[in-house]
Simulated assay, not measured.
Amino acid sequence: MFDIFRSLKTLLKTSRIRIDNTIFQLHYSITVIILLSFCIIISTKQYVGDPIDCVRSDSVSQSVINTYCWIHTTYTLPKSYYKKVGIEVPYPGVDWESNQNEFRYHRYYQWVGFVLFFQATLFYIPRWLWKMWENGKIQSLMMDLDVGVCSDHEKKQKKKLLVDYLYSSRGHHNWYAGRYFFCELLALLNIIFQIYALDKFFDGEFLTYGTEVIQFSQMDQEERIDPMIRIFPRVTKCRFYKYGPSANIETIDALCLLPLNIVNEKIYIFIWFWFLILGAMTAALILFRMIIIACPPVRVYLLSLRFKLGSLDHLHTIVRRMSVGDWFLVYMLGQNIDSVIYQELIQELATKTDNDGKKDII
């Protein structure tokens, strides 16, 4: 098992070439590792034991009743959560009731591992799309300028090639930036979709799960009902039907333990808070992208603050005479090129752009 966890560490390895931002990395790296780790944990019998263990009649073998109740789901009685344990009921939600309309069936536990794996896949899709669309553009333009130690002739030649490319290709990078912004938006839509999909998966309980757990910790001990037990019951009931000696239908009422739910309840309370925090950060990022697109001065100060560039005049010239896509490409190059070389690059690009602008006026 530990070998499997070690293999997940490859997702944490960061390339020396950065083609995205930290929040975007949280989606396809940290979140994917978290979800796959949870998937492995609940699938490992040595840590959580048997997923179900039922108290059965002597006329039916243990393996048969366990398999049947696992496949055909178990149930609880919501109205019995408020009864006193040990006096009126043996466990919250476990009671006798002949009316099956009162039953609340729990079908999710068979699919938790598959759902976690599917969620991890969805979180990686925006990254996969961006890598396909980016197609190594930043790496090809860098020309090893991330290494500050090189000959002056080589550095000068590579800077000239890069400046000439950035100047001659002005206005042709909007599609490049737009694809990246779309992937960030897709990451936000994915997390919103997953929150509502999990709410549907847990019969409308996931949206308020975290707030109910917080409220539960602040309530009076005699009046509170643990939402973890309600959503992830540890003891449930199961009805098994079989033919009796006279060919009549016999009903066996089994009491089932679900030790896996002790793990599930912790997993999903963590996922609830993680999705909330990650969704809020991603929404703020999308809002910031809209501000960047609408306000050119923000692009100037973002370059200045991010890369400690001194002359604002050069940055104003670049932003004024280049599109949002051009600015985005320049910004991404700044994350990968040596800081000293990058300052020289910005100065030369601004000078070339400004001089050609003056020629156009003349």
Rank of each mutant, 00 (worst) to 15 (best):
R289P: 02
I346F: 05
I361E: 01
V115E: 01
K200R: 10
F2G: 12
Y268K: 02
S59V: 12
R16N: 11
I337N: 03
D199M: 06
G148D: 08
L77T: 00
Y301L: 13
L188T: 10
V163K: 01
I71K: 15
V55R: 06
T317E: 13
F5T: 03
K79V: 00
R18Q: 14
A177Y: 06
Q218A: 13
K155A: 14
N174Y: 05
Q139L: 07
T22A: 11
L260G: 08
E348R: 08
T74P: 00
I361C: 01
C54E: 01
Y108I: 09
R230H: 05
S168Q: 12
L188D: 04
V112F: 02
H172V: 07
V64N: 10
A120M: 07
D313L: 10
H316S: 07
M332L: 15
K84W: 02
T211Q: 10
F270E: 04
S98K: 10
A283I: 10
N261A: 06
R6M: 13
L198G: 04
L189V: 12
F5Q: 03
K137D: 07
K308F: 15
Y109S: 09
T76M: 06
G148T: 09
A247T: 07
N66Y: 04
F273P: 01
D164C: 06
F275S: 04
K160V: 05
P259V: 09
L188F: 15
V330C: 14
F240W: 04
L333C: 05
K359C: 00
L312I: 15
L186M: 14
G204L: 10
G93L: 07
H314V: 01
K359E: 07
S29A: 08
Y68K: 00
E134Y: 05
S217Q: 13
A187K: 06
T211C: 00
I225E: 01
Y108V: 07
E344Q: 12
G93V: 03
W128D: 00
C256H: 00
E212T: 03
D313H: 05
D3K: 14
W96P: 00
A197H: 06
I195W: 10
T22L: 14
R306W: 08
Y268A: 05
G244Y: 03
K352M: 14
Y165C: 00
Y108F: 15
